[in-house]
Computed example of a mutant assay.
Amino acid sequence: MQKPWLQNQIALTGFLGKTLGPDYEIALYDLTEASAVVVAIANGHVTQRTLGAPLPALLKQRLDEFRRQAEDTPADEWIQMADMTSTGKLLRTSSRVLANEAGRRVGLLTISFDDSRYRDLSERILRLRHPDSFVDSHFVSRPPTDAPPAGLASAGAPPVARQGLAADLLARAKAELAGEPRRLNHRERMAWVRALDAQGFFGAKGAVGLLAEELNCSVATVYRYLSSLHAGGPRRPSGLE
């Protein structure tokens, strides 16, 4: 049976892949079929997904939550989450539920961004200014080698929670704050970064990426916070100022 909405979305998938470039994977899922598999994909090398790949568990969980809500609100349904590739690269995935003219959910369009090239470039720039040992111990965060394939993390927690020590330290530090980290002003952010550094947070795997997501900023911005912090000398305070 022909699906009028599908051909336009397939064309859009290819267009977005060419426009955004090779660091962005665009995947289209058909929600009108029970299997809800990929029916169009651009730049599948980012996650190694191919046509016919199943809907990731985390996305399926969110869609199930939407289905339990009012059926007349699909236009407001979008999902943003962190994910990991099978090689441990951290991704930012944004998804939008597609609805037909009758308001029925028919598809899901996802865009997964791999910023590893830009983080590598940031690291190289840092190495122009600092000794390699200093960069390795204070700036560079490596993803875990046993990371699950993209979208296959347990549905009970986001994939970034698998980064262990960094996630635990960040959760404790966040619990001590009076408000949301992303609402902190610059001075408060610097104080929080200083406190995290004193606790050894940045020596843990995935620390910089986790903090960037929590502050709703880029990884490069976190690097700038750290660079500014250590430019003032070796002082390591014991807590927030």
Rank of each mutant, 00 (worst) to 15 (best):
M81T: 07
R194G: 10
I79L: 07
F113G: 04
A166L: 05
R92K: 11
R194H: 09
R183F: 05
R162K: 01
H186E: 15
Q163N: 10
A150G: 04
H138I: 03
S154Y: 01
L165E: 14
A82Q: 10
Q80Y: 01
Q163T: 13
G164Y: 12
L90M: 13
G107P: 06
V135P: 11
G107N: 03
R96A: 11
L121G: 09
D132W: 14
S112N: 06
Q80R: 03
L196H: 00
A155H: 02
A171C: 04
Q80G: 08
D197H: 12
V140L: 14
D168Y: 05
M81V: 02
R189F: 00
L128K: 12
Y118M: 12
H130Y: 15
M81H: 11
L109W: 10
H138P: 09
A99C: 07
L108Y: 02
I79W: 02
V193T: 10
L109S: 01
S95Q: 13
A99S: 03
L98P: 07
R96P: 00
P149R: 02
M190P: 06
T85C: 07
G200T: 08
V106A: 08
R162D: 06
H130E: 11
L90Y: 00
D120T: 11
M81R: 11
G151D: 07
R187L: 14
P149D: 05
A178M: 01
A102H: 11
Q80N: 01
P131A: 12
S137H: 13
D114P: 04
P143W: 12
L121M: 13
R182Y: 13
A195M: 00
A198G: 15
S133L: 15
L169N: 04
L184W: 07
L152C: 05
M81E: 06
A155D: 09
D132L: 15
F134G: 06
E180L: 02
P159Q: 10
T110Q: 00
V97G: 00
A147N: 04
A166F: 03
E176R: 09
K174H: 07
R182M: 10
R183D: 15
L177I: 10
R117M: 02
R92E: 06
D120H: 13
R124D: 14
E176V: 09
V97K: 02
P148S: 09
G156Y: 02
L126C: 14
L128F: 09
L98R: 05
S86G: 10
E123N: 14
V135I: 14
A153C: 08
P148N: 08
A191V: 05
R187C: 01
V193R: 00
L184E: 08
R182L: 06
D168T: 08
A99N: 00
S141G: 15
M81F: 01
A157H: 09
L90W: 02
R194I: 01
L170Q: 12
E77K: 12
E188V: 01
D146N: 15
A161V: 10
T87A: 14
S94D: 07
E123K: 12
A153E: 07
